[in-house]
Nucleic acid binder design. Structure first.
Lengths: 214, 214, 214, 214
DNA sequence: CATGAATGAGCCTTCATTCAT
DNA sequence: CATGAATGAAGGCTCATTCAT
């Protein structure tokens, strides 16, 4: 077999250095995510992650200084996923907006499953805890701001504390994905959206909004 | 009191074995709770717990088969605290009932602080996770049952899914104590109760109920 | 068998707690010395030392924070051995004093063999290096002081630099024990003493001293 | 000079493989020496040496089978430096010969600093230890031979053991460079030479030799 | 031949658990 | 029954050495 033939077929699996390294890093991240999700953070060892990614222990430490750093790298990308995105009340029918928002978020979380380790870490990692706290605060403020806008237009209940409503929305959105576990069947995000909307809009106003936006 | 006097008085100050043992067990439980709360479960060693309780390391294992069992013993008493208690809608003014319920629960949780380790454990302990899940399910069912009762009497919104409402109530009650962290100031449980009630009762009906029960 | 009999024979191997612990510590120290001497400091692991002492790895860390600390404990006792003791020129026949001094020191060193690891450590442990340096300086000063005294009485060569002589004595004494390795046969410390004395005393004066002190 | 010119001029600036290889080897050796001297043998990693020499880790192993071999290569050249050179008593004024010999040797040692790692290695490398021992033995014999020659001519003290004198000279020469550390100021090698000569020559004979050789 | 990523044996250290006293 | 020293498995991490590119 000539060398040329070799080149045509044999060298195919060649991948430039950086890409390969990137892939390895990626594999480690994925393994980390999988194992953290499956067994928890403390229960997962660097060695296990490496093995699961198909590399040696030492390789782990080439890409990450330690377990914590890998987790941070994982969270960096996904931290937004863990937090409730704020709904936009005006853009269109609030209920359906909220419903799809809930669904998308739930799907993302379910995908990674990483949110399960967050509580475990937050108690040990003040830094991360602070980051998360601030992020939640920001979300809360955004929701509150949206509520204030529609409140000024007289669209909301006027006997509820908007701050508390904003907080309730955030909590419900954040936990929406967990309903599934409980009920077993698929979560009905429309119903959830309806309930959330009831905290904001009196029924008649909501109806107006929906008609208007159709 | 000198030792001699002790002898003269007889065996009175003698504390029966079981009592002494009970005291040690109690001390270990308290130390465990304190340290788990402070440093987390994994971060707390059996030696530390024993030292904090003023007994030898080996004594720890006379009262508990291992660290996990001590945690279980702690949880056994308090597991109800972690879960949202179901509100009783009829007994009196629903809002104030809910408000005090939220407050009591928050205070209990804050007191023990033990709920912080729950997430850490749940990932490792399928058994406990199952117990928790079932407990939540039961709570959910109870809330749902209550809702159905008042629904049959036409007291609730009739366009909301009661199952979803029940779940929302549970989630909000369960997370109520965390609002404090966010806002900084004390949580206003009355407002929270009001928001929750809005998911259940139309405003006019709620007013009726309140007048009626006063 | 009564308890009394037990006490007479059965409890013989009982050794009070502290003594036992002390023995274990001692065993670890000895093992450390033996292995450091045999294989060098870096080449010796805590695990090896523990195994050699007949205890588990963890036990090592009950008695010493780490390898370095064990070494320090070893050196604490013996640091004086590594250094040349100063001779007393007046007390009696200088040659024989020096000879026995050389011999005693050599025997001590040989016994421990620990001096072999010193150079290995000194390069890494600035602290220890400083301690050793100061100790040597002190020795040098003492020797120099002794030389000055006899120099004032006109007993020494008067064309030699006493500081250099003192240093030479120190070096020769410090290395005396190594002559053995070279020659194979036993070191003749008397001859060594004679040579050292020749750096200090003119032959006639030395003879006078010896006659006088006999 | 531009690259183009290079091409025009032809292959002149091309450095033959062997030369380039030689350069790399040289660079590695120098880096090894520098780092061994600075941080000690065990503390220096192959990676560091390679990086310091500006080559890849793997390249290190193309030139040296392992870290030890690099050290050996370093030592091979310099082993003579570590050992006391034998003085030539006749050539000229013994004192000045010895003084300059001491100084040259000290300078060489100071330059490489490599002698500092010797003790660390000797304990691990029986082979090297043997080589060193034999080298010292040879030096000793040469010094002894020189002493015997002048002894036969009646130039030395006749009541000293020449073997011991030879050993003392060797030790003092070997350690001469360390006096500096102690005293702080520069070592006065003339005084050191004088002291060493006193172990060999009676003062009057030394004076004769000096006059004779001037 | 150079490169530097990958390997994995092995060291240090901790800690849940046991057991002789 | 209490004690706390002892155990040793297991995790975190390093680094000499190899090997695919």
């Amino acid at each position: 077999m000539s060398e040329k033939e070799d080149l045509l077929v044999g060298e195919f699996p060649f991948i430039p250095r950086q890409v390969r390294a990137q892939q390895k890093r990626e594999a480690l991240l994925e393994s980390g995510q999988a194992l953290f999700t499956l067994n928890g953070y403390e229960q997962t060892t660097a060695k296990e992650i490496a093995a699961h990614a198909g590399v040696a222990t030492g390789t782990f430490y080439r890409y990450f200084s330690d377990k914590r750093q890998l987790l941070m790298a994982l969270l960096e990308d996904k931290i937004d996923n863990f937090l409730a995105p704020e709904p936009h009340w005006f853009s269109s029918n609030p209920e359906s907006v909220l419903a799809s928002l809930l669904e998308v978020r739930a799907r993302r979380l379910q995908q990674s499953g990483l949110y399960r380790v967050l509580p475990e870490i937050l108690s040990k990692d003040m830094e991360l805890a602070e980051v998360m706290k601030e992020a939640r605060l920001k979300i809360h403020e955004r929701i509150l701001f949206g509520l204030k806008q529609i409140n000024e237009k007289g669209l909301t209940w006027n006997d509820l504390d908007l701050d508390t409503v904003a907080w309730s929305i955030m909590v419900l959105v954040e936990n929406g994905h967990e309903k599934e576990k409980q009920s077993g069947n698929r979560v009905n995000y429309s119903e959830m959206a309806k309930v959330i909307c009831r905290m904001v809009f009196p029924p008649d106003i909501l109806e107006q909004l929906q008609n208007h936006n159709e």
